[in-house]
Design a protein around this nucleic acid. Structure first.
Lengths: 228, 228
DNA sequence: GCAAAAGTGTTGTAGGTACACCCATGC
DNA sequence: GCATGGGTGTACCTACAACACTTTTGC
């Protein structure tokens, strides 16, 4: 006789944000109920009967943080029996990229506290969320070598150094400015505009660039070999 | 008021087998109950309350086909609301590689019919399994470019051409024997033995090779760039 | 001797890596 | 004039791609 299955399905989101000055951060919420009440955790929650995982993660993210994101990529499904101390819960994790200041976090106004944390300075996380975050970072680092990134993270027009700094901070190592530029321009997924950066502090102002969206998404599909 | 969640969790396995003569096949079972009674489908089933997804997929595979496999890799989680016509079922798909003749399929003796099908000649599949299989093949093709494969698919000792044919059939295009050999030997994950192939038909017998397991798994972890 | 499969080397080319000095601007 | 960040070119070298003839064996 088969026992009735009693497993719940949840989704969790690792949302990466990028600011040129601060580097990569992740969006976390402060739990207001047990278990792990008061701990920081990834936004997420139970999937409803009539929605896909993708719909669920977008809904939860919106509800808990105010962030709308139209493309989250599936990361992995986590199923350790004891990962939630109360019920059996399997969680499907997603990850995505946004510009942190494109959204006003609900943090300030709502009951749930939501906040960006630099990935080099994360608080202790609830459940196995630490593990999920580590995997997401690893995946992001991998992704960068076979797909262009940046479109979702940079301003519409940006100085070349912003892109360069993005790669450096994701890969967590310095990159050679000249070789990087050569390679990026050869792929042609960004193009120079005739505008100049308006200065913020010292230094020679550079030209602004923008993504060639068509080529960018084309290369995302086809894949590139990008070891900078 | 929250509705109670009523979603079931299943696992499905895409098991790839390789024979030098036949190429790549997938292990399928014939369903003996509705829905899709009589159709071919991926082996799999519902996860039990006290097991992880990994345990579940290994158990189901064993039960339904007689195949034991100690390493299956998670592929993707599928959650379309209507993917199972009766209940809401989310399925986590796994994939793995084995030598088809390492196991006697239960097909012949048991009620469930299990059989290998060449990936170029698959029958219509139940549920969204066609879709799952396509994704698995795509993943396998991708995997081959950043990891060595073959250890799980070839005999302990094998002529060099077996490995070459494996790559050719997975990539579905001819590869240059000389360049391929150069590259493989440079990575050093296989080594020549002093034994010679004992002949099966015509042709000059070649030396046998075997995997250098240490280097092989090391390269699997570290990643390689293998565009042959 | 002929069919089948294995073994092997060279050359050209493209791309990657390493590397340092000058320029425009704000203060 | 100095600090800050932007812009740019070359030389070496490695790695990949293309390519064909000879050898060993069975029949």
């Amino acid at each position: 006789m088969e026992q009735v299955q009693d497993i719940k399905v949840a989704v969790d989101a690792v949302v990466f944000g990028y600011k040129v000055k601060d580097g990569i951060s992740i969006l976390l919420i402060k739990r207001k109920i047990d278990p792990f009440k008061g701990s920081w955790a990834l936004p997420g929650g139970l999937v409803k009967n009539e929605e896909t995982l993708e719909k669920a993660i977008e809904r939860e993210l919106k509800e808990e943080t105010g962030v709308s994101i139209n493309y989250l990529e599936q990361l992995y499904s986590f199923s350790e029996v004891e990962r939630d101390p109360r019920n059996r819960v399997i969680s499907v994790a997603y990850y995505g990229l946004i510009k942190p200041d494109a959204f006003q976090l609900k943090a300030s106004t709502d009951a749930v506290d939501a906040q960006w944390f630099n990935i080099k300075d994360l608080p202790p996380l609830a459940f196995d969320h630490q593990h999920i975050v580590e995997l997401a970072i690893k995946r992001l680092r991998g992704k960068i070598t076979y797909e262009p990134i940046g479109f979702e993270l940079l301003d519409k027009k940006f100085p070349f150094s912003d892109l360069e700094k993005l790669y450096a901070v994701v890969l967590d190592r310095p990159i050679d400015r000249r070789n990087f530029k050569k390679k990026v321009l050869k792929y042609g997924f960004i193009k120079e505009t005739d505008e100049k950066q308006n200065l913020s502090g010292a230094g020679r102002p550079g030209f602004l660039y923008q993504f060639n969206e068509e080529k960018y998404f084309d290369l995302k599909r086809k894949g590139i070999n990008f070891e900078v």
